[in-house]
């Protein structure tokens, strides 16, 4: 943290906001897709996983950033893995203690946070070369961008697939009586891919600078 630079300078604010839109980890960097497909059938696990990823990513970024000058670059990946693994185990234990049902629903995906490409990606690309405070903001920002997509996808999948939102029935019984049925395909993983695809499609048709030329 530099003495002159204010805590939320324009540059630091960008670290928080960019990943939400034009530099989104899922729709633009295309990282962390697997968990986005796996846990988004319902809102609750999606939100819990987003928060877990945020905690792990922000703390790991800070720790690695603090250690960045002492880590020999040859073994940096192992050091990063140790840091992330320790944090993931912490998160897993906390979930098991305080939110057992959700932790059972998420099953291996909490443990698999360690393999989430976003985390290693941000550690390598950002935390190793920046001070702890910007690294912390970067972690929060990227996890929020990741969580945003997860929640949007889960919103549509839960609403159309189960007729509920966060476990509450939102589609009235009268609509079912008229012949409406939940869309079974929405609960299956392929539909998560389609929904993510539609988000990417909409985002790129709004922001032409994101379209790759080949």
């Amino acid at each position: 943290m530099s003495d002159k630079e204010p805590l939320f300078s324009a540059k630091n604010r960008k670290l928080l906001t960019n990943p939400l839109g034009s530099d989104n980890p899922i729709t633009v960097q295309v990282l962390g897709i697997c968990s986005a497909l796996a846990v988004t059938a319902k809102l609750e696990p999606a939100i819990v996983l987003s928060i877990s990823v945020m905690a792990v990513l922000a703390l790991a970024n800070v720790i690695v950033s603090l250690l960045r000058n002492t880590i020999p670059s040859r073994i940096r990946i192992i050091v990063q893995l140790v840091v992330v693994a320790a944090l993931v185990i912490l998160v897993d234990q906390i979930l098991k203690a305080f939110a057992y049902d959700v932790s059972k629903q998420l099953s291996v995906f909490v443990g698999l946070i360690i393999t989430n490409c976003i985390i290693m990606g941000r550690l390598e690309a950002f935390a190793l070369g920046n001070r702890p405070w910007p690294a912390f903001l970067d972690g929060i920002g990227n996890a929020a961008g990741y969580g945003l997509i997860l929640v949007v996808v889960a919103f549509f999948r839960e609403l159309l697939g189960s007729g509920t939102l966060y476990g509450f029935h939102v589609i009235p019984q009268a609509v079912y009586d008229m012949g409406y049925e939940n869309n079974g395909l929405m609960i299956l993983p392929p539909m998560a891919l389609v929904v993510v695809g539609i988000i990417i499609w909409v985002q790129r048709s709004k922001d032409k600078s994101l379209i790759e030329s080949n």
């Binding site: 869309n183 079974g184 395909l185 929405m186 299956l188």
Partner: peptide, 10 residues
Amino acid sequence: AFFFFAYPSK
């Protein structure tokens, strides 16, 4: 295919 997987009962 969409119909089949989305509304299997129909």
